[in-house]
Simulated assay, not measured.
Amino acid sequence: MQMLNHSYRGLGLLMQLNWDRMLFVGAIVAALFLGAFLGSF
């Protein structure tokens, strides 16, 4: 249980440090999908 708690805290720290990078990747993916959607008309 203690190992699970430590790994959860480590994952939370990793997410806190890299949330802007994931947001950037998500924005690129959303823009590609939107471009493909608009290009299909």
Rank of each mutant, 00 (worst) to 15 (best):
M1P: 09
M1T: 03
Q2H: 08
Q2R: 07
M3K: 07
L4E: 06
L4Q: 10
N5P: 01
N5R: 07
N5I: 13
N5C: 00
N5T: 11
H6F: 04
S7P: 00
Y8P: 00
Y8E: 00
Y8F: 04
R9K: 14
R9H: 03
G10W: 02
G10H: 06
G10L: 10
G10F: 09
L11A: 15
L11T: 12
L11F: 14
G12K: 02
G12S: 07
L13F: 03
L13I: 14
L13H: 03
L13T: 11
L13S: 10
L13Y: 01
L13M: 01
L14G: 10
L14M: 13
L14H: 10
L14N: 05
M15F: 15
M15P: 00
M15E: 11
M15G: 07
Q16W: 03
Q16F: 04
L17K: 14
L17N: 02
L17W: 05
N18H: 04
W19T: 04
W19H: 13
W19Q: 06
D20T: 15
R21N: 06
R21G: 05
R21P: 00
M22H: 06
M22K: 01
M22F: 13
L23W: 09
L23M: 10
L23Y: 12
F24A: 12
F24R: 06
V25W: 08
V25Q: 11
V25R: 13
G26N: 11
G26V: 01
A27I: 14
V29D: 05
V29N: 05
V29Y: 06
A30G: 15
A31V: 15
A31Q: 05
L32D: 01
L32W: 08
F33K: 09
F33D: 02
F33N: 05
F33A: 14
L34Y: 14
L34P: 05
G35R: 10
G35Y: 13
A36N: 08
A36Y: 09
F37T: 10
F37Q: 03
L38P: 01
L38N: 09
L38Y: 12
L38W: 02
G39Y: 13
G39R: 13
S40F: 09
S40L: 08
S40I: 04
S40K: 03
S40H: 09
S40G: 05
F41L: 12
F41G: 08
F41Q: 14
F41P: 03
